[in-house]
Structure formats: C-alpha cells, structure tokens
Amino acid sequence: MGFILNIETATKNCSVSLAQAGNVVAIREFAGEGYSHAEKLHIFIEEVLKEAETNFSGLEAVAVSMGPGSYTGLRIGVSAAKGLCYALNIPLLAIDTLEVLARKLKITEGVIVPMIDARRMEVYNAVFDTNYNKKSDTKAEIITGDSFSEYTDICHLVGDGAEKCRALLPDNKFMYHNDIIYPSSAEMALLSYNKHQKSDTVDVAYFEPFYLKDFVMNR
C-alpha cells in the first residue's frame, strides 16, 4: 500500500506528515513567530519520505489543508501540493482546516469550536459535534458577547483565535483549551485516507484554497 503526503500550512504551523492506511508514519512540523513555510516545507517533505524509506514514486496522493487561514501559508501549501500531483500524476485531496483543528480535541459532550485568528477580534470558525460533524457553516466572525448564544451545551474553544475571546465570552459554558493552538498534518492522516478511499478528489488544475476573506497585505 502506498503513502499519502499531508501538507498543513494554513497557520503559523508548517506541518508535513506521511501516512499509510490513515496512520502517520513520519511527521515534521514547526510553528514559529513568523511564517517560515517557504523555507521549511520542501525540506520537511524530503525528511518524511526519507524517514519512511520511500520516495516520491511511493506516493498515492497528496492532501492539502484547504483553509481558511493565512493567505500566504495556504498559497505555499497548495502550490507545493499541486506541483507534486501534476508531476507525479496522482490525485489531490483537499481537507477542511477547521476540521483538522477540531480533531485535535476529543470530547464526549458539548461542541467543539475551532478558531483561527483572522486579525483584531475576528476569527475563522465553525462548530462541530462530538463526532466531528459540522453543525455550522465556516465563517469569518467578529466575536461579541452574543457569539454562540444558540448553543446551550459546553463550547470547547480551540485554536490561536480562542484566547482573545476569553474577555468577551467568560461564561462557564465556554471551555478554553489553550494547549491546542494550531492544526497539524497528524490529524489529516485519517481524513485524507477516507477521502482517497472514496475518490473524493479535487481538480489539480483549478483547485484554489478556501480563503474566506480578501487578501490583506500584512497578513
């Protein structure tokens, strides 16, 4: 059985994993203050292939985190993924970044609200149930005291956009998981495997990241 290469660059975390049958066999990631994806991404790809004692010919597909997130980060990841798929003639899989982030947390009650910082008091977010089924549309939202008032269960907030919500959402129904900040390619492994099994692919030539917002120069 071949490998699937997973690329996650939607946030400050530059993350690459190599997976087989939904299980991670090698991973490299780095989250710095700046965006170092352009310098590290291809190095990480080469390192995970070497660790698994394989090469590009061993890849069955490439999966990329599709957004929302950093414009620059998404462009770098998607460009690399499309280039590999085109050169190797293998399928491209697109994975929802917020679901990747949500899957870093396992809960038995309530909902998971993954949040990616979108500047000032705005976050990219969606809501998932305990089985990671999406309960709301992905959106860019300015957080107010009324945000998520429609949910009466515990809301588990994760991601680098969560902490700035604490002052506006102090109610006990909000739980802040400060140790979960960025999505990782580790959580992409099972998602990409399932998509590959169902041939749920995207067009290599025409696929574009899910930016959700217009490009901002200093983002």
Rank of each mutant, 00 (worst) to 15 (best):
I95P: 13
L74H: 12
I116Q: 05
N23F: 09
L74V: 13
V25A: 01
D137Q: 15
I112L: 05
N6T: 07
N125I: 03
T72L: 08
C165L: 05
T201K: 14
F174N: 07
D214I: 13
L168T: 08
I112G: 02
N178P: 00
A19N: 00
L92A: 07
K50M: 05
M175V: 14
Y176L: 08
F56N: 01
A63L: 03
V202T: 13
I112A: 04
S184R: 15
C155R: 03
G110C: 09
S65G: 05
F30R: 11
S70C: 03
G22A: 04
G77A: 12
F148L: 15
I116A: 00
K135G: 15
C85F: 01
A52Y: 02
H196R: 09
K50F: 06
T108Q: 15
K164E: 05
D129F: 06
E51N: 02
A102S: 13
M1S: 13
L101M: 09
G83N: 09
S17T: 15
V127H: 10
A31M: 07
K164L: 03
C165Q: 01
K139L: 05
R119P: 11
L105W: 06
F207E: 14
Y71D: 11
S149D: 15
T144C: 12
E208C: 10
D179T: 00
A10F: 06
V202K: 12
L212V: 04
M115R: 02
V113W: 00
M217Q: 14
A118G: 13
Y182G: 03
M115I: 03
N13R: 04
M66W: 02
S70F: 00
V16T: 02
D179C: 01
E8V: 08
V100T: 13
F210V: 15
L41Q: 01
A38F: 08
L59Q: 04
P170Q: 09
E47N: 02
L168A: 07
A186I: 12
D137M: 12
N125C: 06
H177E: 09
A102M: 13
N23W: 10
I4A: 03
N178R: 05
R103C: 12
K139Q: 14
E53W: 08
D179N: 08
A94I: 15
